[in-house]
Structure formats: C-alpha cells, structure tokens
C-alpha cells in the first residue's frame, strides 16, 4: 500500500451457499440455501448431507426418509442403497 492511502477499513457483503450440485432438495423441494420445512433458520441449524451416491439432501429430510423406510433405505433420487458419504 502506498503511504498515500493511509487506512482502509473494508466492510464487504457476501452470501453463503452449500455448493451442492442441485439447487433444491429432492425430498422437500425447498432450496438448499433455504431450510427444510421443519426448520426456521437456514445454515448451521439445517445442514446438508451427502450420500455415497453423491446426492445431497437436507439432513433432516433424509433422516426422516431413512426412518420411514421399513427395510434398507434407498436414495430417493437414484434408488441406490443409501449410505452416508464418509
């Protein structure tokens, strides 16, 4: 910085994103950057989770889905056996 510009205080604005392949959750159809129908606050409170198949969902949505299945759960998108990504 040249001595001519003596001080800079920058307050910037950004938005956050989950960086998922899709825009919306395949279960609840809500945007990933929003939150699932059961949550009020997006972000940390309503995280995303990836499956081994690389499909992502709201954590709360896929948990509900997995619990609702009587036998082994499958990915709602690709029908492969559901495994949480390591």
């Amino acid at each position: 910085m040249s001595p001519w510009l003596r001080k800079t205080e920058w307050h910037a604005v950004a938005s956050w994103t989950w960086d998922a392949q899709d825009e919306t959750c395949g279960i609840c159809r809500m945007p990933f950057d929003g939150c699932c129908p059961d949550c009020k606050l997006p972000g940390d409170d309503c995280p995303l989770i990836w499956g081994a198949c690389n499909h992502s969902f709201h954590l709360h949505c896929i948990l509900k889905w997995v619990n609702s299945q009587t036998s082994q759960a499958h990915c709602p998108m690709c029908r492969r056996e559901w495994q949480f990504k390591e």
């Binding site: 205080e9 307050h11 910037a12 604005v13 950004a14 950057d33 929003g34 997006p42 972000g43």
Partner: peptide
C-alpha cells in the same frame, strides 16, 4: 483486520 463482512442467506 482490515476486513469485516456481512454474510447473507440470500434466499430470505
């Protein structure tokens, strides 16, 4: 230290 930020949940 020269930078601060406001991070938005743009959808809302």
């Amino acid at each position: 230290d020269n930078l601060t930020s406001t991070i938005l949940s743009t959808n809302f």
